[in-house]
Design a protein around this nucleic acid. Structure first.
Length: 191
DNA sequence: AGGGAGATTTTCT
DNA sequence: GAAAATCTCCCTA
């Protein structure tokens, strides 16, 4: 898949985008050097979903989710964690894809410094990978392609994509909107 | 290995 | 004032 084709999937919507993003390399250029990982787990959030931040309409917090596909949405939660989304769909529609887990690819030493951990503990959760990559709320509202890049990474066969229920939400729990790479050790939790 | 509670603060009701 | 798209530590088996 080319990058143009990836963005085409993102424009289609959160579910198509969540599947298409698997295997892509998420790159954060920092002053220390490039820090990057292959996306191995995602979750789709559409505006009609009670579990989505955008379900009740646009607010100052979730405004970037209403931007065009390819915008970055970083939110703060539980008083101490950040998570990152890739916005999907047309401008004015609040939806996006939560990046839940990545497999370290570049700048692993930097990740260890950021996380004070090693192995799968580096990036096997949405708040963990954000800390490992050094992503901050300053990226919220920016576009993919500058402060954060998406580059071709692993080839994921359709057969290797597992669909499951989402994690850590209290509404819309039964929605099958979580996608991950089968057998990958960095996936936060297998079915 | 697995479960439960605490941390900690922004955001919305 | 309550809940939150989570993580880590500490406890018990």
């Amino acid at each position: 898949m080319t990058q143009a084709e990836l963005f085409e999937e993102l424009r289609k919507g959160a579910v198509a985008g969540a599947k298409a993003l698997l295997g892509w390399k998420l790159v954060h250029p920092t002053s220390q050097g490039r820090v990057a990982g292959y996306i191995v787990e995602t979750e789709a959030y559409v505006q009609e979903d009670p579990a989505s931040h955008t379900f009740k309409g646009q607010t100052t917090r979730n405004a970037s989710m209403f931007e065009a596909a390819g915008t970055i949405y970083v939110y703060f939660t539980y008083g101490m964690h950040y998570c990152v989304n890739i916005v999907t769909g047309p401008k004015g529609h609040g939806e996006g894809v939560l990046i839940r887990a990545i497999q370290p690819a570049e700048g692993i030493e930097i990740m260890k410094t950021n996380r004070q951990k090693t192995g799968t503990q580096l990036t096997n959760g949405p708040a963990k990978l954000v800390e490992a990559l050094g992503i901050t709320s300053a990226l919220n509202g920016q576009k993919v392609g500058d402060a954060l890049l998406l580059e071709p990474g692993l080839k994921i066969r359709t057969d290797d994509i597992q669909v499951a229920t989402r994690i850590g939400i209290s509404q819309g729990v039964e929605e099958l909107a979580r996608f991950y790479v089968k057998g990958n050790p960095y996936v936060s939790r297998t079915a």
